[in-house]
Write a protein that binds this DNA or RNA. Structure first.
Lengths: 247, 247
DNA sequence: CGCGCGTTTGAGTCGAATCAACTCGAGTGG
DNA sequence: CCACTCGAGTTGATTCGACTCAAACGCGCG
């Protein structure tokens, strides 16, 4: 951790891995300079809480590396994940004093933080930041609505296939889109997948076993997944065959 | 329809019922002038489609009066409502060419429309509009996440109680917060409620009957609901007793 | 009157939750 | 080195809540 930490603390925005996708994506050199002066990095170990719902939130932040989750919990302990934060995703709401959800690091995590007040001031001064934040928020809203369809109407098997497809697609966009099968590590435990999908962990386990038994996926250990045919997997998601061409 | 239409077509922004809550809320007199020149009203009768998912969308709009829904449909016909649009809510996404969801008028509906291109230009020129749109989008995202908890983790009874509580709360904020019981008309059919809640219409009907049988609600006809004790209703939603104080 | 639509109610089924036992692998310490 | 523990995951038996299929109701309307 300290290695990474040191390296990242020195990082100039211009060399940042999420430079072109995060809330700062549209900023020009001058604006980056401004951001540079108010930013600071924080690291979290896998499993650590970043903030609890209701806590005072004195910063907003971008995920630089790693994965975090947003979850809501009911009094009796029922839990629902309401957001999955990947590198470049933004946490926190300008203009709100307290966190609305629990934020947890599910892998080792590095965040690029801005104290709320200076960030808000900067946002009011530089439309590029506000524009980008609006765009990102609209994307998140679309993702949330897709997710609502999954939670409300999909079967357990379709939910699992959809989750695998989302992760596979994300990795496929990084690696070459080789038709010869996608492979990736699950960034979530069975229980976290259950919280994501509105299922129990037992049902998650059963459905994964079922997809494995039928050859839709191959497992190497518990976490590493191989998808021989992405088309075959997509058939199981219940979605439109063609990924629904927006924009 | 033509009566209403005529009246509204003449409406100056300054006298608009949603003036202080819609996307134009922060605009000053000059900015309103600008908006005035590019806006136009459209009316839809209850049950009519406003736009279909995938259609080219040449405008964005605010709901002035009435209620509209956003829904997603799977190939096999399963439907999930992903948004409920009340007066002042905004429809459409700047920068996107086609609609992502089906939009339907569930009651008679009047919308204040802006052709997309002029609106985008105006938005880039006037930060007040972009600021307000960001704020509204963040609110919608919060609502969507609340809804995800409902869809993923709540029982049928809790879902119905939550929906009634949402409508009751909205009406309570309009009328005086009289402790002596809230009353309102359901703006949705049983089937639309089912699409909202991720249930079947039969289950919706059964749960409403059950709440009625136990005196949590009283029905006058099929659509008019009386809630003798809002606290009693809130107990059935599964939510935290104190509505979770955000902001 | 009869038709259609939204709604209610009933009987039976099924999918996912629950409760419980067991496996597997990594880490610990005697 | 091996026994032990512990957490993550798997699998089985059973239960239960919501879905499905089906029938009937009530109300407005031509």
């Amino acid at each position: 951790m300290s290695h990474l930490d040191l390296k990242l603390t020195d990082l100039k925005c211009g060399a940042c891995p999420i430079r072109h996708r995060a809330v700062c994506a549209r900023c020009d050199a001058d604006e980056l300079q401004e951001l540079e002066t108010i930013k600071y990095y924080r690291s979290f170990e896998a499993g650590q809480p970043v903030i609890w719902s209701g806590d005072r939130m004195e910063f907003v932040a971008s995920v630089v590396t790693g994965i975090a989750t947003l979850t809501q919990t009911m009094e009796d302990g029922r839990r629902q994940m309401v957001g999955l934060l990947l590198p470049s995703d933004f946490v926190g709401r300008p203009g709100r004093a307290t966190a609305a959800y629990d934020v947890t690091a599910t892998t080792d995590l590095v965040m690029c933080c801005f104290r709320k007040k200076p960030f808000e001031d900067l946002m009011n001064a530089t439309p590029h930041i506000a524009q980008r934040l609006l765009e990102m928020t609209l994307d998140e809203l679309d993702a949330a609505r897709e997710w609502m369809l999954l939670l409300g109407r999909k079967t357990a098997r379709e939910k699992i296939a959809s989750l695998l497809a989302i992760i596979a697609r994300r990795n496929a966009s990084l690696k070459a889109a080789s038709s010869g099968g996608v492979r990736f590590d699950l960034p979530l435990t069975r229980e976290e997948m259950a919280d994501y999908l509105g299922l129990t962990l037992e049902t998650v386990s059963r459905q994964i076993s079922s997809l494995k038994r039928e050859g839709v996926i191959v497992l190497e250990g518990k976490r590493h997944v191989i998808v021989p045919s992405l088309d075959r997997l997509l058939e199981e998601t219940g979605d439109d065959s063609d990924g629904g061409m927006l924009n």
